[in-house]
Design a protein around this nucleic acid. Structure first.
Length: 189
DNA sequence: CCGAAGATCTGCT
DNA sequence: GCAGATCTTCGGC
């Protein structure tokens, strides 16, 4: 059994929907806390729902950084959300993890210990992993981040993205089939 | 300069 | 199922 491959810049330098689906099953750690990615969403450059749609601003500058850049923003004034940049102006939002490392610390940060809920949803996930704006603009391929490609076969399902008002028809939310750690169930077609 | 809009989450009905 | 919390950035005037 070999060690799983670390992800590199080339992995991210591709269309966001492809990267979003391939990140499922990968292991994401921040300072040793984290788990297996089970839910993601893709946001493209020509995508009305994307923060990058109207071009670079102070807030979204990281979205135009090199592939693999970490883009973090504050949602509704309370929740941090974690993204990885793909091609310029595109990114993948990490929406849920299946916890596997640093369970005690994550539980303390979240003041709860239900594994199903610990890293469910982009805001909860960032709270559990200690992700804040301080990590914005760093590279996902270097500490404190650690990303390992998946080793097992992962069956991917997709559906409409959550919480957006524009471009609702794009099926750019991706999840691991039958995972009980996703933020909301995927409806079968 | 001020107003509105969020890639959310929790608690209450 | 729905409303409220909470705050920064952006865009219009």
């Amino acid at each position: 059994m070999h060690l799983s491959a670390l992800m590199d810049e080339a992995f991210f330098a591709r269309p966001p929907d492809l990267v979003a689906s391939e990140l499922l099953g990968a292991r994401l750690l921040v300072n040793g806390c984290g788990g297996v990615i089970v839910e993601t969403e893709a946001y493209g450059p020509d995508d009305e729902a994307s923060h990058s749609f109207k071009g670079p601003t102070k807030k979204n500058a990281a979205m135009f950084g090199p592939p693999g850049t970490v883009y973090i923003y504050l949602s509704y004034g309370r929740h941090w959300c974690l993204n990885f940049v793909c091609t310029p102006g595109s990114a993948v939002l990490i929406r849920a993890l299946q916890p596997c490392e640093g369970f005690g610390l994550m539980s303390a940060r979240r003041s709860m210990s239900d594994a199903r809920v610990l890293c469910r949803g982009p805001g909860n996930l960032c709270q559990a992993l200690g992700v804040t704006i301080e990590l914005n603009g760093l590279l996902a391929t270097s500490p404190p981040f650690s990303l390992h490609a998946r080793q097992d076969e992962t069956v991917v399902v997709s559906g409409p993205r959550i919480g957006i008002s524009k471009a609702r028809d794009r099926p750019w939310r991706f999840g691991v089939l039958n995972s009980s750690y996703v933020s909301r169930p995927f409806r079968r077609s």
